[in-house]
Amino acid sequence: MEITSLSQLDMNATYTYADYLMWELKERVELFKGKILKMSPAPSPVHQKISFRFTGIFYNFFKNRQCDVFSAPFDVRFQNKNGDTKNVFQPDLCVICDSSKIDDKGCLGAPDLIIEIISPGNSKKELSLKYSIYEEFGVQEYWVVHPLEKTIQIFVLEKDIFIGKKPITEDEMMKSYIFPELTFPAKEIFENL
């Protein structure tokens, strides 16, 4: 049976990436430990502006380096030790330096850096779930962008645990911990929003 609507799925069931690939949904979804997470509707103009600004900065920084930059929608799959893939997310932006993780379906394994932009539709629960998976599977650096507060929270993986760094405000310089040469004024992200 062709799956074209969330109403055809059991929201309490556990699914795999193989199931996910079979769905032809109009709605965007992600998987967390096999459970369906509905994504918010189309991002707001502010969200899109922020994403586009990051994409421009990252493109210019990484264009002559071995890393690739991808923006949503782009599937990032996390496979557990049993080979099951029950975690599939679409980060707003991600940087992947190990090209063997990239295939025709997206990324299999942890990107080096992930950016998530908070939207009114993003729930705190969803952020907490993503944080735990990104930490568990070894994302080296995770940025959470808060458009309303005009801040960026950075988490860096140290000894398999995310360590939160001081939030960056719009008047400060943004600097990556794993890519120390990646530095820019945060106002480039938040100006005129």
Score class of each variant (00 low, 15 high):
7 S>I: 11
8 Q>H: 01
14 T>I: 08
16 T>K: 12
16 T>G: 09
18 A>L: 12
18 A>W: 02
26 K>W: 02
30 E>V: 04
31 L>F: 07
33 K>V: 08
34 G>M: 09
35 K>N: 12
35 K>E: 12
40 S>D: 14
41 P>E: 13
43 P>V: 04
44 S>C: 13
44 S>D: 11
45 P>R: 12
46 V>Y: 14
47 H>T: 14
50 I>N: 08
52 F>L: 15
53 R>C: 10
56 G>K: 10
58 F>G: 04
60 N>H: 11
60 N>R: 10
70 F>I: 05
70 F>A: 09
71 S>K: 06
76 V>A: 08
76 V>E: 03
77 R>V: 10
78 F>Q: 01
82 N>S: 14
82 N>I: 09
84 D>M: 14
85 T>Y: 01
86 K>W: 00
92 D>C: 04
97 C>M: 05
100 S>Q: 11
100 S>P: 01
105 K>Q: 13
106 G>L: 08
108 L>V: 12
109 G>L: 07
112 D>S: 07
113 L>S: 02
115 I>N: 03
121 G>F: 11
122 N>Y: 15
124 K>G: 12
125 K>D: 14
131 Y>T: 06
132 S>Q: 14
137 F>C: 10
138 G>A: 05
144 V>S: 02
148 L>Q: 08
149 E>G: 10
151 T>Q: 11
152 I>Y: 00
153 Q>Y: 00
161 I>Y: 08
162 F>C: 05
167 P>W: 07
172 E>F: 03
178 I>M: 02
179 F>T: 12
184 F>Y: 12
185 P>N: 09
187 K>N: 13
188 E>P: 00
